[in-house]
């Protein structure tokens, strides 16, 4: 790890100043589970590391009927997994958060960190796509909300300018019957990255689908959604056209985890399993 200056701002304003002054040379330290590995591997060599864990606004986890759910940037995965309100109203998020790393890693890792890493296989990102999450960003100009699919630009690329800091994730309230599930296909049962992941969410009969680890960013499965929305009965057989559509919507690569061909096969199965599991939650 290279040498760097460590700062721990107490307020958003202070953090924004430091980030603005240091630009690309500053890295935000949140849970650190990705940052420290990347610094160890010398993939990044920040001059300033900005620990945001002392900023009060970032620690919030709250739900209101009007605004929905807010998950502060430093709320950990395990806090999300164990949150009653999330388990009750956004179970898919708890499910996905539980898929991230090991128990001890989830004590440090955060959902905002997962989003800001913008890895194609980030487990919590696909569920945030189907929940139409917004990323709440603070800068000296004020607060803005950016839809997650506008926020994530590419592999490890996000729409965050110098001086901006993610306060948390805002998820709209869900009205009416709904159910969602995240299905992850990986090589090992415990602690593995997704080879393929699918988030499926149904609200009042309208489906939202997102695919993970099959393109440079998470992808929405618009075609599959369209097909699903028209189905009266959803089962193994009627799902086939949607599974076929998923194959057309993705652009996976071959890597050490799987070949492109296998990912095409697994997107079908993952879609099917995610949708069927979402239906089981549907209420």
């Amino acid at each position: 790890m290279n040498k760097f200056q460590y700062v721990k701002p107490a307020t958003l304003n202070e953090a924004a100043d430091i980030l603005y002054q240091n630009g690309d040379e500053a890295s935000i330290l949140n849970g650190g589970t990705d940052l420290l590995v990347r610094m160890r591997d010398k993939m990044i060599k920040p001059k300033v590391v900005v620990d945001v864990k002392a900023i009060p606004e970032l620690k919030e986890l709250k739900y209101t009927e009007e605004e929905g759910l807010f998950i502060g940037a430093v709320v950990t995965m395990n806090e999300i997994v164990c949150s009653d309100i999330i388990l009750e109203k956004y179970k898919i998020l708890a499910e996905a958060a539980h898929e991230v790393g090991s128990y001890q890693l989830r004590n440090r890792a955060t959902m905002t960190g997962n989003v800001c890493n913008a890895s194609p296989s980030g487990d919590t990102i696909a569920p945030l796509y189907v929940l139409s999450a917004n990323i709440k960003i603070f800068s000296k100009e004020g607060i803005k909300l950016v839809p997650i699919d506008d926020f994530i630009l590419g592999v490890r690329k996000i729409a965050l300018k110098p001086g901006e800091i993610v306060v948390g994730i805002q998820i709209p309230p869900i009205k009416g019957k709904n159910g969602g599930s995240y299905y992850k296909h990986s090589r090992r049962k415990d602690v593995d990255l997704a080879t393929v992941g699918v988030a499926a969410f149904c609200n009042e009969g309208r489906w939202k689908i997102a695919y993970a680890a099959v393109a440079p960013t998470i992808l929405r499965g618009y075609k599959a959604e369209e097909i699903l929305n028209k189905l009266d009965v959803i089962d193994d057989t009627t799902l086939i056209p949607a599974m076929d559509a998923a194959v057309e919507e993705i652009s996976p690569i071959s890597d050490v985890r799987a070949s492109k061909e296998y990912r095409f096969d697994m997107i079908r199965i993952s879609l099917k399993r995610a949708v069927l599991a979402a239906l089981e939650q549907y209420a």
Binding site: L36, D51, Q104
Partner: peptide, 9 residues
């Protein structure tokens, strides 16, 4: 809480 001490400053 259990944490990986290699991933914490």
């Amino acid at each position: 809480k259990a944490v990986n001490s290699c991933m914490m400053l």
